[in-house]
Structure formats: structure tokens, C-alpha cells
Amino acid sequence: MVLTTADQPRMTQTEFIQIVMPFKDKLYRLAKRLLVSSEEAEDATQEVLMKLWAKKKGMGRYRNVEAFAMTMTKNFCLDRLKSKQSGNLKLVHSNYADETKSLQRQVEVNDSLQWVEKIMDTLPEQQKLVLQLRDIEEYSFEEIAEMLDMQPATVRVTLSRARKMVREKLVEKHNYGIR
């Protein structure tokens, strides 16, 4: 038997940041989708990245660091939500985009975007996750299946349900606006 130095060369901070850079925003957006508050999402992302940094030695083992990090973020946020529910704490958020728009039309558009976000907040967790990962982050069904530990076919069904739910509520709102 031949002994090899299979040990990964030590990862530097710069290398780590280079690996993490392309998807750190995705982690944050996923966290924010689940936790709603941007401060909490920032904290969660920070936490996940620090955990990942602590695990950097074994990072070469993971086939897909990005998918792994997304799963970590999802689990971390769901745990947060669970402990929050048991603690009977309310989610507070007051951070919808507030760029000052001068035109009435833009105000309306902005308003309807916020509406979609609010609808998304009301979706069941799985639907919310799948919609986030597909329509915002544009992952493939296989990637989403890996991240959420689901069957690709189930991902498809859940996604269809989520999209239809958003449509339904949007139509409700639309009709209400016309009347």
C-alpha cells in the first residue's frame, strides 16, 4: 500500500471567499425569504458562512459546496423559526424597498411587487422554498431536489402549486383593484 498525503492543502481566507462569493447573496436571499427580517437574514447568513469556514478542511469532500451551503441555510433558518415559534416571538419586519419613486406608475408597480412578496410570505414553507430556488435563483429541478432532499418530481408538483397559489391570490387582488 502506498501512503499518500491526501490532505487538502490549507485553505486561506482569500480562497474561501472566492468559493463563497458567487453564492453568498443566494444564501442571504433564501434566509430572508424564510426569516423575513433582513437583520435576522444577515445574522443567519453570517452564521452559516462562519460554520462553513469552520468546516473548510472538509469542504473538498462536498461535491457541491453551493448546494450544501443552501441546505445549511435552509436548515438553520427553519430551526430559528421553530425556536421562535416555541418562544412565542413575533417576526417583525419593516424593510420593504423604500426607494423614493416620483412617478405614480412606479409607485403602483412597486406596490404590486410588494404584494407578490406578501403573497409569497403566506405560502407553506416547502412551496416558498421551491419558488424561491426556481423562480428567483433559477436552479434546476435536480439542484433543488438535492438542496431540499426531495424527489425532482415532487419539486415539480410543489412548484406548480406554489405558482398557481400566487396567481390565484394575485388575480383576487387584481379583481378587487378593478372593482
Partner: peptide
Amino acid sequence: EQYSAMFSFFSSAKQERFTKQVPLKTS
């Protein structure tokens, strides 16, 4: 037109960035 809010939201939601610094301690 009712659908444009949906797709516009997806596009705008993708613009959000994580700007916080992460202290990477070599603990």
C-alpha cells in the same frame, strides 16, 4: 398584465445583496 408583477418581483428580488462582513477567525 396581472402576471407582470409576479415576474417583475422575481427579477427584482434577485437584486438583493448580502453586504455584511463575515469575521473569519482562525480560532
